[in-house]
């Protein structure tokens, strides 16, 4: 139930999937792919980070990310073994 940010997204360029740490705090993005270690991927999926899901980036400290999806806040620490790609949602 996130706000519609399509207009903002259009103006800043969208479409290309990027790793989640490339998006600034405040961005509302859509999960594009969860890849890497199978166990981690399944874990992320079970916690709500599934392709197609919209999330809001609350904090981006590079390695440490805080996301919000629905009413859930998820703290992530990225590692080379796990890649979370996102994309600005299409208008």
């Amino acid at each position: 139930m996130l706000a519609d940010t399509s207009l903002l997204n259009q103006t800043i360029g969208l479409g290309e999937p990027k790793t989640i740490d490339c998006f600034p705090a405040g961005a509302e993005v859509e999960i594009h792919a969860v890849s890497g270690d199978r166990q981690l991927c399944k874990r992320m999926e079970s916690m709500g980070l599934r392709p197609g899901k919209q999330v809001k980036i609350l904090k981006n400290r590079g390695r440490g990310i805080l996301l919000k999806t629905e009413n859930t806040r998820l703290a992530l620490r990225l590692s080379p073994a796990f890649v979370l790609e996102a994309v600005y949602p299409r208008p």
Partner: peptide
């Protein structure tokens, strides 16, 4: 070993 990625829910 590498420290694995970390994911944790922050409850309201």
């Amino acid at each position: 070993s590498d420290i694995p990625a970390f994911v944790m829910e922050l409850p309201p």
